[in-house]
Simulated scan of single mutants.
Amino acid sequence: MQTPLQCSSAGKTAAGIALRHLKALRHAAERLVDGDDDALHDFRVALRRLRVILSAYRNVLKPASRRKMRKKLKRLARFTGPARDAQAWVLWLSERKNSAGFEHVSSVIRKLERFRVAAFREIQEKAVGRFWDLKPKLAHRLKKVRRQADVRPLFGPETAKAVSREAGSFMRLLAAYRRRPVATAGHKLRIASKRLRYLLEPWEKDFSLKYFQDLLGEMHDLDGLEIQKNPAAVLTAIKKRKAEIRDELAGGKLDDLEKFVRRRRNFL
């Protein structure tokens, strides 16, 4: 038996989801202006969720999902990357600064913190402004789609097609990562897992993908931190933690994840 969500209009439902993400993005932008450090994470997550919906359902969300708009949102996401990376590095080092061998890490933290503050200020001054410039047009277009979209195509079949595409992409990237588990392959796989998880969110709450992407996310952060100027003890700790993550991924986690995604290739 089909659920009301499956039988709903793809355009109306996808537009409604996108508008919720846009609202979350607006709230995070307001907090960024107020200097809330935690808002950066929320801003990036809401932006990523919005981009996934606009891309996955672009055929039923036009004109809101036009390539030009999606490119603007992509550039906005890239603009926030450096501040987020520095924030993650400072947190990782701060949690360990009292450990043996980390006595001289305070100078590294101060340097990264100065960079983070400067990058955060640039986001406040430029990125948030760019968001306010595009938000009214995007909101207007999404509301128009929600009002005027046809009953068909249905949301269920459209989601099934989108999930099948993303699951296929994920499986190809997973195979590439198994062959050569380097940083770039891991980063691409992590992004693919996020896209798939965001598509599944309205239908199920499963944290298999979240746990996996958190591991790869920490690996990505450590790859970036490793190339900074660090004391020898910090580099040793980074290499040790990366080895632990690789062991955890190799210990059946990738097999479990592959089974999870394979089951969802025939979603709905």
Rank of each mutant, 00 (worst) to 15 (best):
M1Q: 13
T3G: 04
L5S: 08
L5V: 01
Q6H: 12
Q6N: 10
A10R: 06
T13K: 02
G16W: 09
R20F: 08
A24T: 00
A24D: 13
R26K: 13
R26V: 12
H27N: 15
A28T: 11
A28L: 12
D34V: 09
G35D: 12
D36P: 13
A39Y: 05
D42A: 14
D42L: 15
D42H: 14
A46W: 07
A46M: 07
L47G: 15
V52S: 06
L54P: 14
L54V: 08
A56G: 01
R58S: 15
P63K: 01
S65F: 09
R67M: 05
R67P: 02
K68R: 10
K72P: 00
R75E: 10
A77S: 12
R78A: 14
R78S: 14
T80P: 10
G81V: 04
A83C: 04
D85I: 00
A86W: 00
A86D: 14
W89N: 02
L91H: 12
L91A: 07
L91V: 08
L93I: 08
R96P: 05
R96V: 03
A100P: 12
E103C: 11
H104G: 15
V105D: 06
L112K: 05
R114W: 08
R116G: 01
V117A: 15
E122C: 13
I123N: 12
E125Y: 06
V128D: 10
F131I: 10
D133Q: 13
K135W: 06
K135V: 00
K137I: 04
L138K: 10
R141S: 15
L142G: 08
K144C: 07
R146I: 04
R146D: 00
A149W: 00
V151K: 10
R152P: 00
G156H: 04
G156I: 09
P157Y: 05
E158N: 12
A160F: 02
A162C: 10
A162Q: 09
A167R: 05
A167T: 11
G168C: 11
M171E: 09
R172C: 13
L173V: 06
L174E: 09
Y177M: 11
Y177K: 09
R178C: 01
A185K: 13
G186C: 05
I191C: 07
I191H: 03
S193K: 10
L196S: 00
L200E: 11
E204S: 13
K205W: 11
D206L: 00
L209A: 04
L209Q: 00
Y211S: 13
F212H: 06
F212Y: 10
Q213Y: 14
G217Y: 00
M219Q: 11
H220D: 15
D221K: 01
L222W: 01
L222C: 08
G224C: 08
L225I: 05
L225H: 02
L225C: 07
K229N: 01
N230T: 12
P231C: 14
A232N: 03
A237D: 01
K239Q: 12
K239F: 00
D247P: 03
E248V: 03
K253C: 08
K253A: 14
L254G: 03
K259C: 01
F260E: 11
R262H: 03
R264I: 02
R264K: 04
R265V: 07
R265L: 08
F267Y: 04
